[in-house]
Amino acid sequence: MSQKTPRQFFKPLAIGAPEPFRDLPVRLERMIHFVPGHNEKIRPKVPDMAKQVDVLLANLEDAIPSDAKDAARAGAVEMANMIDWQASGTGFWSRVNCINSPWFLDDVTDLVLKAGRQLDVIMLPKVEGPWDIHYADQLVAQLEAKAGLSRPILFHAILETAEGMARVEEIALASPRMQGISLGPADLAANRKMKTTRVGGGHPFYRVLEDPHADGSPRANAQQDLWHYTIARMVDACRMAGINAFYGPFGDIADLDACEQQFRNAFLLGCAGAWSLHPNQIAIAKRVFSPDPDEVRFARKILAAMPDGSGVAMIDGKMQDDATWKQAKVISDLADLVASKDPDLASAYSA
């Protein structure tokens, strides 16, 4: 048997480790804001940044030079202890180096033993199968027990290889620690041998062309989304497992319009949030991954007209039934979660 039995699935993997969550904590995670752990100029700004974002992540992996890995790890521990993250309402995460790197063991050991009480999620890059999750799961359980933690640390996997993508359902179901999965478009594109140097977004050569005209006039064409299939499959795997899907990085920091469109595509397909690599992407993620006030008002009309979700109702000329009631519930519940943290949107949703 390749998987644990249901009775064993939620048992701690080490004596003294905390009981795994049976349901994910309900948290607003519209953006995961990356901060390089080794950057001494940015690190002092963390307490102020924490007030602006839903999740702040101390990055130890890509974009951290090899000779700065130790400094990044120490910086992550320092960030963890700057404020009381559990009381702040902002999540504190860290992306460690990949499992087959020489830094992974020290990353996880230091984070759990020195910052485990403040750390919500460990982001695991380049996950290729459930075996990666199982190894990290056992290791973290042993460290949690050693540190005397009472709350389990969750895992967030990044899809960055074709094998990981092919096994995304197995990864999503690998452990009760699984919080979510993000798309890593740059590494995945390279591994798939896709012919693009862009980090996320569309490509001018990936288009559809209308049929020829009899008069030979120019044919209309439209640029397509390279990532539509990948995101949709990731979302399905995550929702099957009861965890959250996230769009990852959008690399062109200056192209805010394209960033917003990519985030919006991911939001409509079911993603809970995206990464922000620069402060100018934070506001975009807040706007995009919060439901539109008009949508919220219409959704709440449906819920009010069909309190128990049964029957049929005509609202603004549109027929509503149990399926549209469920859609409305998704929008309304997200609006409630956003309103709990964002006073301006709370006011807009109640208007």
Score class of each variant (00 low, 15 high):
residue 236 D to N: 09
residue 183 L to P: 01
residue 204 P to R: 10
residue 235 V to A: 05
residue 241 A to T: 10
residue 184 G to C: 05
residue 225 D to T: 07
residue 201 G to M: 11
residue 216 G to T: 12
residue 220 A to S: 10
residue 180 G to V: 13
residue 218 P to E: 15
residue 223 Q to W: 06
residue 201 G to E: 11
residue 217 S to I: 00
residue 184 G to Q: 01
residue 223 Q to P: 00
residue 233 R to I: 07
residue 227 W to A: 03
residue 177 R to Q: 09
residue 196 T to W: 10
residue 212 P to W: 03
residue 200 G to L: 08
residue 218 P to Q: 13
residue 237 A to E: 05
residue 203 H to A: 14
residue 243 I to A: 06
residue 184 G to M: 03
residue 233 R to T: 12
residue 209 L to H: 09
residue 185 P to L: 12
residue 243 I to H: 06
residue 203 H to L: 13
residue 237 A to S: 14
residue 234 M to A: 00
residue 194 M to S: 14
residue 246 F to V: 04
residue 225 D to Q: 10
residue 211 D to S: 13
residue 184 G to A: 03
residue 187 D to I: 10
residue 221 N to F: 14
residue 228 H to M: 04
residue 244 N to R: 15
residue 205 F to V: 09
residue 196 T to S: 15
residue 196 T to F: 05
residue 179 Q to N: 14
residue 211 D to M: 12
residue 190 A to F: 02
residue 223 Q to L: 07
residue 182 S to G: 08
residue 232 A to P: 00
residue 224 Q to R: 15
residue 180 G to A: 12
residue 228 H to N: 09
residue 225 D to F: 01
residue 195 K to S: 11
residue 205 F to L: 15
residue 236 D to C: 07
residue 189 A to D: 02
residue 188 L to E: 06
residue 211 D to C: 04
residue 244 N to M: 13
residue 177 R to D: 03
residue 246 F to T: 04
residue 213 H to W: 10
residue 224 Q to I: 06
residue 186 A to R: 02
residue 192 R to Y: 12
residue 208 V to K: 08
residue 223 Q to G: 06
residue 190 A to P: 00
residue 203 H to N: 15
residue 217 S to A: 15
residue 178 M to W: 08
residue 197 T to I: 10
residue 182 S to T: 14
residue 230 T to S: 05
residue 228 H to T: 07
residue 222 A to H: 09
residue 211 D to G: 09
residue 234 M to Q: 09
residue 246 F to E: 07
residue 237 A to L: 01
residue 200 G to D: 07
residue 216 G to C: 11
residue 190 A to M: 14
residue 188 L to R: 00
residue 191 N to G: 08
residue 243 I to Y: 01
residue 209 L to M: 14
residue 201 G to H: 10
residue 196 T to L: 06
residue 231 I to S: 05
residue 186 A to W: 09
residue 236 D to H: 09
residue 218 P to D: 13
residue 221 N to I: 01
residue 220 A to G: 06
residue 247 Y to L: 11
residue 236 D to Y: 02
residue 192 R to C: 13
residue 239 R to D: 05
residue 211 D to K: 13
residue 212 P to Y: 01
residue 242 G to H: 02
residue 219 R to Q: 15
residue 243 I to S: 06
residue 204 P to H: 14
residue 206 Y to H: 15
residue 225 D to K: 03
residue 226 L to G: 06
residue 240 M to G: 04
residue 238 C to F: 02
residue 210 E to S: 13
residue 228 H to W: 06
residue 205 F to D: 15
residue 208 V to A: 10
residue 207 R to L: 13
residue 189 A to C: 01
residue 197 T to L: 12
residue 180 G to Q: 11
residue 235 V to Y: 01
residue 178 M to F: 04
residue 229 Y to W: 02
residue 188 L to N: 06
residue 235 V to G: 05
residue 241 A to P: 09
residue 221 N to S: 15
residue 197 T to P: 00
residue 219 R to G: 06
residue 202 G to P: 05
residue 233 R to D: 07
residue 216 G to D: 09
residue 182 S to I: 03
residue 222 A to Y: 09
residue 180 G to I: 11
residue 222 A to G: 04
residue 191 N to Y: 01
